[in-house]
C-alpha cells in the first residue's frame, strides 16, 4: 500500500468526547492496511477552549495530517472555508474531518466536489432526508411528522429547512416546534418536555430529531419525554439511539465513517492527492439502527422485513 513517503506518518487526531467508534475505525484502517502511522489523540472533552491549543500543538509536532472529529472541533480548528485565519486555523497541514453532519452549512467546505481549500477534505455522515423518511415509512406508515429544533444553531436551522422541503415533497404534514430561547439567547433544557408534549398533542406519529448540538447534548431528557408521550423518535445519527432512548436511526455507523475518512487520509498521504481534489464523501449504505428497549416501551415493533437487516441494540425483554 505505502508507495510514497517511506516513514511512518504522524497523524494528529482532535476528538470531542474521547476516541469513540469513528476514531477507532480510522486507526484500524491504517492498521488493517499495514500503513505505518503513529497517532496523537487529543480529547477536548467537550471543551471548546482547548481547541486553540490543539492547533498550536499539531503545528509544533509537525504532524503529517490533522483529523478533526465533529462539527465543533472541525469549525474551530479548520475555520471557515472562505476566510481561514492562518494564525488560528490549520491552513498548511493536510486535514481530514469526520462526523460533520452538514459541512456546507457549517461553512467548513464550499461544496461536496471540493472543500475549496488546499489542505482540507473530509466525510459527511448523514443519510439524505428523503432516504431517512422512506425508511421510516417502511417501519410504520405515517402522515404526520413532528420536528423540534433550536433556532440559535445554524446547523439546526439548515436541517429544519431541509426537513420542511423533503416533508413537502413526500406529502407529509410537518408539525414544527421551535424551542423558546432564554434571555441569553439559548434554549433551556427545561423547555424540552413542553415542546415534546405540544408535538404529541398535535398527533404527530413520529418525532424527528435532526442536527442540533443542543438536543444531542440533552438527548436523554428529550427521548425520555418522547417515550412518556408515546412518541417514537427517529434520529439522523446513531448517538440518540445507542446512548439514549430514540427508537431508531438511519445513519452511517461511526466506525464505518472513520474508515472512510481514513481512506481519504491514505489518498492524501500515500497517493499524494491534493486534499482539495478529494470529494467530500459519504457512505452509500446506511444502517437501520433500532433500540429494542424503546420499541418495547412504545409497543411499536419493527416489521419482519426490517428486522432482517437492522442493527438491533438493547434487545431482550424489558425489565
Amino acid at each position: 500500500m505505502a508507495t510514497g513517503k517511506p516513514g511512518p506518518f504522524h497523524i494528529y487526531m482532535a476528538v470531542w468526547r474521547g476516541c469513540e467508534d469513528a476514531c477507532k475505525g480510522f486507526q484500524d484502517y491504517f492498521r488493517d492496511n499495514k500503513i505505518p502511522a503513529t497517532f496523537t489523540v487529543r480529547d477536548a472533552g467537550r471543551d471548546k477552549a482547548k481547541l486553540a491549543g490543539f492547533v498550536q500543538e499539531a503545528r509544533g509536532l509537525e504532524a503529517d495530517l490533522v483529523v478533526t472529529w465533529g462539527t465543533s472541533v472541525t469549525r474551530i480548528m479548520l475555520g471557515p472555508w472562505d476566510k481561514p485565519d492562518p494564525a488560528k486555523h490549520v491552513t498548511k497541514i493536510p486535514a481530514v474531518f469526520m462526523i460533520v453532519a452538514d459541512p456546507i452549512g457549517a461553512k467548513v467546505v464550499r461544496d461536496y466536489e471540493s472543500s475549496g481549500r488546499a489542505n482540507v477534505t473530509g466525510t459527511r455522515n448523514r443519510a439524505p432526508t428523503a432516504v431517512q423518511f422512506k425508511a421510516l415509512q417502511s417501519y410504520k406508515t405515517f402522515k404526520r411528522l413532528g420536528l423540534i429544533y433550536n433556532t440559535n444553531e445554524l446547523n439546526a436551522r439548515l436541517n429544519a429547512a431541509q426537513v420542511r422541503k423533503t416533508a413537502g415533497e413526500m406529502g407529509l404534514d410537518l408539525i414544527e416546534v421551535k424551542l423558546p430561547l432564554g434571555e441569553d439567547g439559548k434554549p433551556s433544557p427545561d423547555a424540552i418536555e413542553a415542546a415534546v408534549k405540544e408535538v404529541a398533542d398535535k398527533k404527530a406519529e413520529f418525532l424527528y430529531m435532526g442536527s442540533s448540538s443542543f438536543l444531542t447534548k440533552f438527548r436523554k431528557p428529550f427521548t425520555d419525554a418522547a417515550i412518556k408521550y408515546k412518541l417514537p423518535v427517529a434520529a439522523g445519527t446513531e448517538v440518540p439511539v445507542t446512548k439514549a432512548g430514540a427508537l431508531m436511526a438511519i445513519a452511517s455507523r461511526y466506525y464505518n465513517v472513520g474508515q472512510l475518512a481514513a481512506d481519504q487520509a491514505r489518498r492524501v498521504l500515500v497517493d499524494k492527492v491534493a486534499p482539495e481534489k478529494i470529494r467530500i464523501q459519504r457512505l452509500r449504505r446506511f444502517s437501520f439502527i433500532i433500540n429494542m428497549e424503546t420499541a418495547h416501551k412504545l409497543k411499536l415493533y419493527p416489521p419482519m422485513e426490517i428486522l432482517r437487516y437492522a442493527e438491533v441494540i438493547k434487545a431482550g425483554p424489558t425489565q
Partner: peptide, 10 residues
C-alpha cells in the same frame, strides 16, 4: 428479541 409472538409486525 423479546417481541411477543402474537404481536410480530409485518
Amino acid at each position: 428479541l423479546g417481541i411477543p409472538f402474537a404481536e410480530l409486525n409485518g
